[in-house]
Nucleic acid binder design. Structure first.
Lengths: 68, 68
DNA sequence: ACTCAATGTAACATATAAGTTACAATTTGT
DNA sequence: ACAAATTGTAACTTATATGTTACATTGAGT
């Protein structure tokens, strides 16, 4: 699950810790999502988008091997 | 979790059953997502979009003020 | 009215997202 | 080089998305 969250977060001048607080999750979850190591829920994706002021398609996509 | 999946599915001329088969999930899961009764994973959202030939924001975006 | 395909929903089981705690590694500033 | 902030990640627990089976409801066609 590749994504642009890290870049958008940094542009929004937020640390993982701060983003996690805003969204109400843990820092570890932010880290794992940024690293593409898991598959967040739609609700969480939307909250992350609101926090970094982006839309879903700007942040999240799927690459071919994930479709397999 | 409100969304536009049902409309897009019908425009794509797919039944819930057929869409479920394409995406590799059960008919029941499609039904529950269309009814907004749960919170699908990002990967599933992307697969559903791919199947009905739409983008994430067209099907699953919710404005922050509507997000309760 | 009848039939059949399509859809809505339970109860329960399973897989996995996400939390908790903890510690290591990396980056940044001085 | 050092210290502090930030980030990566592991083991374990908990919450919930999704599957399975089953049955009820709705809608279109005859």
């Amino acid at each position: 699950m590749k994504n642009n969250l890290k870049i958008a977060r940094i542009k929004a001048d937020l640390t993982q810790q701060r983003l996690a607080e805003v969204v109400g999750i843990t820092r570890q979850t932010v880290s794992l999502i940024e690293k593409g190591k898991y598959n967040p829920s739609l609700k969480l994706c939307l909250q992350l988008c609101y926090a970094v002021n982006r839309k879903l398609d700007e942040i999240f996509w799927i690459n071919e091997e994930d479709f397999k």
